[in-house]
Computed example of a mutant assay.
Amino acid sequence: MTIAARLKHHLEAQGLPFSMVRHPYAATAAECAEAAHVPGDHLAKSVLIHMEEGPMLAVVPSNHHVDLTSLQSILSRRIGLAPETEVEEVFDDCDLGAAPPVGSAYDVPTIIDDSLTGLDKVWFEAGDHKTLVEMKGKDFDKLMKDAKHGSFCTLH
C-alpha cells in the first residue's frame, strides 16, 4: 500500500489515528468508492482550484461536483479548475488524479464542503489509485480544522 510521503508525515505529526484500505485500481473518485465498497458521500474528493493568488483545494464528496459558481461566490474572487500541470506541481508525490484532500500537508489553502463534516467515517485518496486512508469522522474533522467551510457542491 502506498501513501504519499508528505501526507503520511502530516498525518503522523497530527497524531490522529488512521488506517489504509487497499482496493482494485480505480481512475476516478466515484469508481474508487465503488471499488473500495465505501459510500460515495463519505469519500472526500480533491479538486484543485486555480486563483490568481495561487491554488486552493476544494474538497467534496466523490459523488458530487464542485459548483464553481457557488464556490466563486463564497470566495468572492474569480476561479477556475487548475490545469493538470498545476495539479502535478502541487501534488508531486501523488499519482495524477489521486491527490489527498489534506491541503495543509501541501501548504495549499483548503475549503471543504459542509456535507463532509460530522460523518461517522471518512475515506480519501492516499496518493495512488489503489489505496485509501480511512478515518473516524471526528478525527477527519480535526484534521481539516484549518480549512474553510461552505456549501458548494452538486450531485453528479
Rank of each mutant, 00 (worst) to 15 (best):
G80A: 10
L81M: 12
A82D: 00
P83H: 11
T85E: 15
T85S: 15
E86P: 00
E86H: 07
E86S: 14
E88L: 15
E88T: 15
E88P: 07
E89D: 14
V90R: 10
F91L: 06
D92A: 14
D92T: 11
D93E: 01
D93N: 00
C94D: 01
C94L: 05
L96S: 08
G97Q: 01
G97N: 01
A98I: 00
A99C: 12
P100N: 09
P100C: 09
P100Q: 09
P100R: 10
V102C: 14
S104N: 13
A105K: 01
A105G: 05
D107Y: 10
V108E: 07
V108G: 09
T110R: 07
I111N: 05
I111Y: 04
I112F: 10
D114V: 12
D114A: 08
S115W: 03
S115L: 13
S115H: 07
S115C: 11
L116F: 03
T117K: 08
D120H: 11
D120L: 08
W123N: 09
W123Q: 11
W123M: 10
W123V: 05
W123E: 09
W123L: 12
F124E: 07
E125I: 03
E125P: 00
A126S: 15
G127S: 05
D128Q: 02
H129I: 02
T131G: 06
T131N: 09
L132R: 06
L132F: 07
V133C: 12
V133A: 12
E134N: 14
